[in-house]
């Protein structure tokens, strides 16, 4: 499984063709200019996460409080913007509740998760889990991600706080906490994994350990998936695969060594666009590392229905998302 570097078109006149990154059947053409908006009109600092609504609009969180939510069409044009009250706008999850779509914004600076309509009206706040016995005060809670259970319960990853997964009822009542510093190191992301219909589970990032961990819906640790070299942001389950952005492949945190990663249904790496060829020796993944500086610090991926991937980046020079178009 080799990482291609080129497509064959474009060789005429001796010109260099566009680079292709990725491995096997998951190779992509890079478009770093997918969005060419005016930064003065739609400023961004760190671009954190994305979600797509049922009409194909792409919502993105940025911590620039002049427009915390940007809305793109699939051509990269910004068609809307709202939000000035989310200084730590980070996690973004879209959930369809009886035909109406809502956003859940995890704001690590406000120590809250905020549920809004798609046009920014605040519906509900999910506050720090005061009754859990795990937190002394609000300032210890820095949520980075939200995921919604099949029954509508809300699960929040405290990725920049104490690494607990906090389980709320839909109306915000605390039900449970699990994970925590004994089981998770930098619980940056969480996703519902229903690929096995019989055993739905949570996929949770333990970013500093370069691991994904599977938890039962009620919080029992089921499995650890080691991905050396991958400081995983959040897992995104799409069809039978898991996609995620790898912020860095080696410390320090601003090393600029990120890439994108794709797992198969058995949670084995089958492609790592921008990184070394995934290789397993005796079932153990050999450490991945960046090979092509297509990204600096990728922070999230959104997989489109045509298999394109949109990639946001943290601390990468105020850039809009990069688009990867699948070519194989």
């Amino acid at each position: 499984m080799k990482q291609s570097s080129l497509i064959t078109t474009g060789f005429c006149f001796g010109l260099k063709p566009e680079p292709i990154i990725g491995h096997g059947n998951f190779q992509y053409r890079i478009n770093q200019n997918w969005c060419t908006a005016n930064q003065a009109e739609f400023p961004v600092k760190n671009c954190h996460e994305m979600a797509m609504d049922s009409t194909g609009r792409i919502f993105m969180t940025t911590d620039d409080t002049r427009n915390n939510i940007l809305i793109f069409n699939k051509d990269g044009k910004i068609t809307g913007a709202w939000g000035r009250d989310y200084p730590g706008a980070h996690g973004l999850t879209l959930h369809n509740e009886n035909g109406i779509e809502f956003l859940y914004i995890a704001d690590y600076e406000r120590n809250q998760v905020i549920k809004t309509t798609l046009d920014g009206k605040v519906i509900q706040l999910f506050e720090w889990p005061a009754d859990s016995g795990k937190y002394a005060n609000k300032q210890e809670f820095h949520p980075t991600e939200t995921a919604i259970a099949p029954n509508g319960d809300v699960f929040v990853a405290d990725g920049y706080g104490k690494d607990y997964i906090v389980h709320y009822s839909p109306n915000g009542t605390l039900i449970n906490v699990f994970g925590g510093p004994e089981q998770l190191k930098n619980a940056h992301g969480i996703a519902l994994d229903t690929r096995d219909k019989n055993i739905p589970c949570w996929l949770v990032t333990s970013r500093a350990e370069n691991q994904l961990k599977r938890f039962s819906l009620d919080g029992i640790l089921l499995e650890t998936i080691s991905l050396p070299g991958a400081y995983i942001c959040r897992p995104v389950v799409y069809q039978e695969h898991v996609f995620f952005a790898v912020l860095i492949s080696q410390l320090p945190w601003d090393s600029g060594t990120g890439f994108v990663c794709i797992l198969d249904k058995n949670n084995r790496v089958i492609s790592a666009p921008g990184a070394s060829t995934p290789r397993y020796e005796e079932a153990l993944l050999q450490p991945l590392y960046q090979t092509i500086k297509a990204f600096k610090h990728p922070h999230d991926v959104l997989v489109d229905t045509d298999d394109s991937i949109y990639v946001t980046q943290w601390n990468s020079g105020n850039v809009y998302p990069t688009k990867l178009t699948r070519v194989s």
């Binding site: 474009g10 005429c12 006149f13 260099k16 890079i30 060594t257 090979t291 092509i292």
Partner: peptide, 18 residues
Amino acid sequence: CVLLFVPAIINAQSLQLA
């Protein structure tokens, strides 16, 4: 042809290896 391949030139030449 030039317009078709100019983006490709920019892309290929601006990406650096790790």
